[in-house]
Computed example of a mutant assay.
Amino acid sequence: MPSRTVRTTLAAPVGLPGRRGVTFARVLSAEWGKTASLSSTWCSVLAAVVVNAAVACFVAYDAGYDLSAEPPGLLHLLTMALVATQLPVIYVGVLVSSSEYFTGSIRATLLAVPRRLQVIAAKTITVGVVAALSGIAALTVTYLAVLPFRHRVDLTLDFSDGETTRVLGGFVLYLVAVALLCTGVGTLARRPAAGLVVAVGLLFLLEQALTMIGSTAALAVLPGWAGRLVATPDVGVAATVAPLGTGLTPWQGYGVLLGWTALALTAAAVRLHRSDA
């Protein structure tokens, strides 16, 4: 009896990528997945939002008890807590860039992604997005939080004024630059605790120490002090830079911060490219 040849047709695989190999889009997607899956990331975002809103509400509430003083403006209320708001963002930048070294999982990451610069580039973009979301959320929630105090404060904003757009946009841009700077610091330190000490010292503690010992001239080259000028109203900028005898403008101050950020990320990329995990 003649044998029959049975032919079967296999279904085409579904869900497989159309392009083989490691691409930057996949690396970026993986880094975003790791960052978004960490509860500490969103807790930090929430902390930044709550701190910014809480400080503004306290000042707005207290303004009702000093009738002789001029009511605080909305622009000032939205951005006055920037120093405290940056702390959770600093934590995110350092943690995302250094935690894999601490746990040892960076070996698996670099094994999967031979081009190491793609890894740090993906982490930088991811942290920048989180920082931008934190800044936008902080401004939005703070505005909603101070609405009940409209009879005590001035809630008008003139978006046709360049100062208003600079201060509000500078608030978000400052947080993004700080987060990227801390990404570089965390990659260099490779330990969350060490990275946090360096980042907080550079962005906050060092300027306090220089102010206490009277070396205020050096403040103009510090990333935190100079960078915050971009989120400071014109009157505050003039009062801040006058004692130093410098004509530093808000955008020049932000340029100082960007210089520190570029230096930290470049050094981190070089170390990651040339050293072992």
Score class of each variant (00 low, 15 high):
35 T>G: 12
37 S>I: 07
38 L>H: 08
38 L>G: 06
38 L>I: 06
38 L>A: 13
39 S>N: 01
39 S>V: 12
39 S>I: 08
39 S>C: 07
39 S>Y: 09
40 S>T: 14
40 S>G: 06
40 S>Q: 11
40 S>E: 03
41 T>W: 07
41 T>I: 09
41 T>H: 05
41 T>C: 07
41 T>R: 03
41 T>L: 03
42 W>T: 07
42 W>C: 01
43 C>F: 13
43 C>D: 02
43 C>G: 14
43 C>T: 13
44 S>Y: 09
44 S>G: 02
45 V>T: 10
45 V>H: 00
45 V>Y: 05
45 V>G: 06
46 L>N: 00
46 L>Y: 04
47 A>E: 07
47 A>P: 01
48 A>E: 03
49 V>W: 03
49 V>S: 01
49 V>F: 04
49 V>G: 01
50 V>F: 09
50 V>G: 00
50 V>D: 01
51 V>F: 03
52 N>F: 08
52 N>Q: 12
53 A>P: 08
54 A>M: 10
55 V>Y: 02
55 V>W: 05
55 V>T: 08
56 A>D: 07
56 A>N: 01
57 C>T: 12
57 C>I: 00
57 C>E: 06
57 C>P: 02
58 F>H: 11
58 F>Q: 09
59 V>S: 11
59 V>N: 11
60 A>D: 04
60 A>V: 08
60 A>P: 06
60 A>C: 06
60 A>S: 12
60 A>M: 06
61 Y>P: 01
61 Y>I: 10
62 D>A: 15
62 D>R: 15
65 Y>W: 14
66 D>F: 15
66 D>N: 15
67 L>N: 11
67 L>P: 06
67 L>W: 12
68 S>N: 14
68 S>C: 09
68 S>R: 15
69 A>I: 10
69 A>M: 13
69 A>S: 15
69 A>Y: 05
